[in-house]
């Protein structure tokens, strides 16, 4: 279940970065060839991506070095955060996550995930997470259509 949610999140980030100019600009703040891993303890369920030339690539094999590791201390906190019950910022405030690597880059990722959650969930959910809610540059319909059928983003 966690693995599925994480994979959906990554697919959504890829879609958001490709469609939403603000997200794309945010994403380009990250260094080139930058490897980000999101890991959920205690079972070490993880996804790993590489950011290169403004695009996101899945990293299938465990890399030698991860530049930014966001690690949820337990599964329940991860689910709450990834399913829109809590924001990533709240998870950080409640000490539910650990961050290995540059905190400024973690902030960029947080901002991207905030907007992605707004694309993924109805306003009823994300309206409680953010004040004000991030601006969405493309329609949710287009976002979902691209996410589901957009091929290799």
């Amino acid at each position: 279940m966690i693995k599925l949610i994480l994979n959906i999140l990554i697919r959504a980030i890829k879609t958001g970065v490709a469609l939403d100019k603000t997200l794309g600009a945010d994403f380009e703040c990250l260094p080139n060839n930058y490897i980000i891993k999101i890991n959920v303890l205690p079972k070490n369920i993880s996804v790993c991506i590489r950011c290169m030339d403004g695009k996101i690539f899945n990293v299938v094999q465990e890399p030698n070095k991860v530049d930014l590791l966001v690690e949820f201390k337990d599964q329940k906190s991860a689910v709450n955060c990834l399913l829109g019950k809590n924001s990533l910022a709240t998870a950080f405030c409640e000490h539910r996550i650990k961050i290995y690597g540059n905190i400024n880059n973690a902030m960029t990722l947080t901002r991207i995930v905030n907007t992605i959650e707004c694309y993924l969930y109805p306003k009823l959910i994300y309206g409680k997470l953010f004040n004000p809610t991030p601006k969405l540059e493309v329609s949710k319909f287009k976002f979902y259509l691209t996410m589901l059928f957009g091929g290799n983003l």
Binding site: A89, F92, N104, N105, A106, T110, N131, P132
Partner: peptide, 16 residues
């Protein structure tokens, strides 16, 4: 503004 938006304190502000 570009530096400030990526500061660690930015995410903790109650207003985005």
């Amino acid at each position: 503004a570009n530096i400030a938006i990526n500061d660690g304190a930015a995410a903790i502000n109650p207003k985005l």
